[in-house]
């Protein structure tokens, strides 16, 4: 794979308009305004999160149109029940969680994709993993295959956690809310993600 990175080509993470805490505070103010029926605040919130939430929804449903519909449905529901919109701490966490819940419901009803049911009493949480290792290096051929293999093997919840952290800048607490689990479980997921990075780096350096 040709390298397109040279000294000076790598910048830092894209600067955000507001720091995370400032954005959270702004969001809570918007939420309060929305509760009072402020349509402009509603539009501001929508414009702030539409693209990111669409991208997150797409991860679950694999369809541009369905993802768009899910995100709009979430905001439609927010507006229609605005007087009692009870969101605290993180509006962002609430929105992502709402999108995920709708996506899961949609997947179930639409019977899209695949369903795996494990038939055993000694169930291992997060069904099996196919880590990238030196065996794959010999069998799979090149780095491309190895990366895709590793990606394909990531369990869904871990993938969601990684995406939320690296692509959407959610905090572990927010990620826990989206996955409906504890921050401790999220830390476990992320430590596995770190292990995957280590394997990836090790693999790259071995070929």
């Amino acid at each position: 794979m040709a390298s397109t990175v040279g000294p000076g080509a790598v910048a830092g993470p894209a600067p955000v308009e507001l720091s995370s805490t400032a954005a959270a505070a702004r969001d809570l103010q918007l939420a309060a305004a929305i509760r009072r029926g402020d349509a402009q605040a509603f539009e501001t919130l929508y414009r702030a999160y539409h693209a990111a939430l669409w991208r997150f929804a797409h991860l679950a449903v694999n369809s541009s149109a369905v993802a768009e519909e899910l995100v709009q449905d979430v905001f439609l529901a927010v507006w229609q029940r605005r007087e009692t919109w009870d969101v605290r701490e993180s509006v962002r966490g609430w929105l992502y969680a709402a999108v995920r819940n709708r996506a899961i419901k949609h997947r179930r009803h639409a019977q899209l994709g695949e369903r795996l049911v494990v038939d055993t009493t000694d169930e291992v949480p997060g069904l099996g993993e196919a880590p990238m290792d030196s065996h794959d290096a010999v069998e799979g051929g090149d780095l491309e295959d190895a990366i895709n293999r590793a990606l394909a093997a990531i369990p869904e919840r871990r993938r969601v956690a990684m995406t939320l952290r690296w692509k959407h800048a959610l905090s572990p607490a927010e990620i826990a809310r989206v996955l409906q689990t504890t921050p401790e479980s999220v830390r476990v997921l992320l430590s596995r993600a770190r292990a995957d990075l280590a394997t990836l780096i090790g693999y790259v350096r071995s070929v």
């Binding site: 794979m1 669409w54 991860l59 491309e144 993938r159 990075l197 350096r205």
Partner: peptide, 25 residues
Amino acid sequence: FAEHPDVADALGAYVARLDPSGEPP
């Protein structure tokens, strides 16, 4: 990253392909 462009490339590809979706509307 500058000193190890292969690692940078691999990480970039890995992260980019986590949530392939094309452009949002």
